[in-house]
Computed example of a mutant assay.
Amino acid sequence: MDAQLDEKALESTLAESLDELTPDSKTVSDDEFAEVVGGALEAVGGTLLFKMCVDSGGEGQHVAAACVGDGGSRQFLLLTLPTTGG
């Protein structure tokens, strides 16, 4: 499969999954973030490498690193979401 098409499919799947967390103004929990990211990565054959919550200038951010593909075609991803959603 073309790497650019693969990247677009991954981006679309992750965006759709993360959109599920933003319908209201509640705080997004670490478990909710992990569940949505994990589901999106599973859909595209990706692997979650790590996740954490960091404070960026008084605003919390969920951060996750993941990879998709193998060998020379492996891509690394950095995913972020404010704890307030968005």
Rank of each mutant, 00 (worst) to 15 (best):
77 L>I: 12
80 T>D: 05
42 E>K: 15
48 L>E: 13
24 D>K: 08
12 S>T: 13
53 C>H: 07
30 D>M: 07
20 E>H: 12
37 V>W: 04
67 C>W: 03
49 L>C: 05
40 A>T: 04
29 S>G: 12
81 L>H: 09
64 A>K: 07
15 A>T: 15
45 G>W: 02
55 D>M: 07
83 T>I: 10
51 K>H: 09
68 V>H: 12
1 M>C: 06
83 T>E: 13
14 L>T: 11
27 T>G: 09
13 T>S: 12
27 T>L: 04
52 M>W: 01
7 E>V: 06
73 S>A: 14
82 P>N: 11
2 D>Q: 09
21 L>D: 06
21 L>K: 09
40 A>S: 12
12 S>D: 08
68 V>A: 10
26 K>N: 10
47 T>S: 11
48 L>Y: 09
43 A>K: 13
83 T>S: 08
44 V>K: 11
28 V>Q: 07
75 Q>L: 06
84 T>M: 03
57 G>T: 02
63 V>N: 07
74 R>K: 14
11 E>L: 08
84 T>A: 12
69 G>S: 05
47 T>F: 00
10 L>V: 14
57 G>S: 01
48 L>R: 09
25 S>R: 13
45 G>E: 01
4 Q>C: 03
53 C>M: 10
15 A>I: 01
24 D>M: 00
18 L>W: 05
84 T>L: 06
18 L>P: 09
42 E>V: 06
38 G>F: 00
55 D>S: 10
24 D>T: 09
78 L>I: 11
17 S>V: 05
8 K>Q: 12
21 L>C: 07
75 Q>R: 15
64 A>H: 05
85 G>Y: 02
81 L>N: 07
36 V>T: 10
66 A>H: 07
79 L>M: 10
54 V>G: 08
52 M>H: 11
53 C>V: 14
46 G>C: 03
33 F>L: 01
47 T>V: 13
23 P>T: 02
62 H>R: 10
29 S>Q: 06
33 F>A: 04
65 A>S: 15
79 L>F: 04
36 V>P: 02
84 T>K: 11
79 L>R: 08
13 T>L: 03
11 E>K: 15
40 A>Q: 06
45 G>Y: 07
14 L>I: 13
60 G>Y: 00
8 K>M: 11
31 D>Y: 00
57 G>W: 01
28 V>G: 06
37 V>F: 03
35 E>M: 07
82 P>C: 08
15 A>N: 12
52 M>Q: 15
32 E>H: 05
40 A>R: 08
84 T>I: 03
80 T>E: 12
21 L>T: 02
69 G>T: 05
34 A>I: 05
18 L>R: 08
55 D>G: 13
44 V>A: 11
2 D>R: 13
41 L>I: 02
12 S>E: 11
